[in-house]
Computed example of a mutant assay.
Amino acid sequence: MCADMFEETWLTKPYAEIVDIAGRNGSILMVPVGSLEQHGRHLPTGTDTILATAAARAGTDRLDDDVPVLLAPPIWAGYSPHHLPFGGTITVEHDTFIDTITDIVDSAANSGFDAVTFVNGHGGNKSLLSTAVSVAGGEHPEMELSTFLYLDLLGSDVEDIKQSDVPGVHGGELETSLMLSIRPDLVDEDSVSTTPQHEPYDRAGADLLNGGPVTVYRSFDEYTETGTLGEPAAASAATGERTLELVGEEIATVLESIHEHVRTIDS
C-alpha cells in the first residue's frame, strides 16, 4: 500500500488532537471502506482499499483549513463472498460488516464528531453501507451520516474519461488506470485480460457504473475466468490522474456541503 496511506490520519494523532478536531463546529470523520479480494491477475487484492483511501485523501487535500475533517485509516475487510471461488479473498459476514460501521459511528460520536462519511471503493459494500448508515442514523439523530461509492461521483463524465467501450469495472480500465497513477509498481501489465461484462437481462444494467433496476446475484466466476471485467489494456496513468482529479473535486464539494449544513444546524 501507499507509504503515506496512514499519514495525517486518526492512526497517527494523539487523542487530544483528535478530540480538538472533533470539537470544532461542523467536524467530519471520513472513513475509506474497501475490501481484500481478487482483482484479476494484474492488480493487487487490496485495490479497492488503496483506491478508496486515495480518493478520500484527494478530497481532503482540496479542502480549506477551516473545514475540520479527519481521515480515518481504511476498513480493509468488505463483503466479498462472490469473489471467494478465485481465492486470495477475505470477506466478512454481512452482520459483522454492519456492526463494524455502526460501532465506528458510536465511537466517532463519543469523540464529538458532528458527521461521518464513508468513502466506499467496493461495489459489494454498497447496499450494506446504506443499511448501516440508516441503522446508525437512527441511533444518532444528532449526527450527519452519509456514504457513496467514489466512482459514482463521476456521473456522466465517466464516458468521457474512458478510452474503451468494453463494459465492466472490476479490474478494468478505470481501476487499472488509477493504480497506474498512484502505485504503478503494483500493476502487472503483462497479465491483463479483457472480459466484457455480460448481463442476460437488459434491465440489470451493463456494469457497476451503468446499473439498471433489476438486481441479480451471481458468483464472480460466472462472469469471468480471470477475475477481471472490462478492458484493462486501455488503461493509462494519464486516465488515472484525470479520474482521481475529478473524484477529488467531487469529494471536496460533498465534504464542504456537509460541513456547511451541519454547522448551520448546530449554530
Rank of each mutant, 00 (worst) to 15 (best):
Q163S: 15
I182H: 02
S111Q: 15
P184Q: 02
G172E: 02
V133P: 07
P68N: 08
S181T: 02
S127E: 14
S181I: 07
E159Q: 13
P73T: 04
P167V: 01
T89Y: 00
L180W: 07
D157G: 00
G138D: 08
N120G: 13
F86A: 06
Q163H: 13
S111C: 11
L154D: 04
D185Q: 06
F86D: 08
V92A: 08
D157N: 14
F113Y: 11
E175S: 05
P85I: 04
D114Q: 03
A132D: 03
V67T: 15
L178P: 00
Q163N: 12
P141R: 11
A109T: 09
P81I: 00
G124L: 06
A109P: 01
H83W: 12
I101D: 03
E173I: 10
L71N: 04
F97H: 05
V133R: 07
V169T: 12
P167N: 09
L178T: 02
T147R: 00
H83C: 06
Y150V: 07
E144N: 01
S156R: 14
G155I: 05
V116P: 10
R183Y: 08
N125P: 00
A109I: 07
S111Y: 13
F148R: 09
P73M: 02
L71T: 01
S80H: 03
R183W: 01
P68E: 12
P73R: 03
V158S: 07
G123R: 03
H170A: 10
A108E: 13
F118M: 01
F113K: 11
T147E: 07
T176G: 11
L154C: 05
V133K: 07
T147H: 08
K126R: 14
Y150N: 01
A108I: 14
V133M: 09
L178K: 06
F118S: 00
N120K: 12
L129Q: 02
D106Y: 04
M143H: 06
V133I: 15
I90S: 12
I90K: 10
T100P: 00
S80T: 15
I182R: 10
G121K: 08
V158Y: 05
M143L: 08
V92L: 11
D95A: 13
S156K: 15
A136M: 09
H122I: 01
L151Q: 13
D103V: 04
A109M: 02
L84F: 03
L174C: 09
D185C: 03
D106F: 04
T131Q: 11
E139A: 14
S164T: 03
G87R: 01
S130Q: 14
Q163L: 12
G171C: 00
F86C: 06
F97R: 02
I90W: 12
S130R: 15
I161S: 06
G121D: 09
H140E: 04
I161Y: 12
G155T: 06
D106T: 14
S127D: 13
D114H: 05
F148K: 05
G138H: 06
V135G: 04
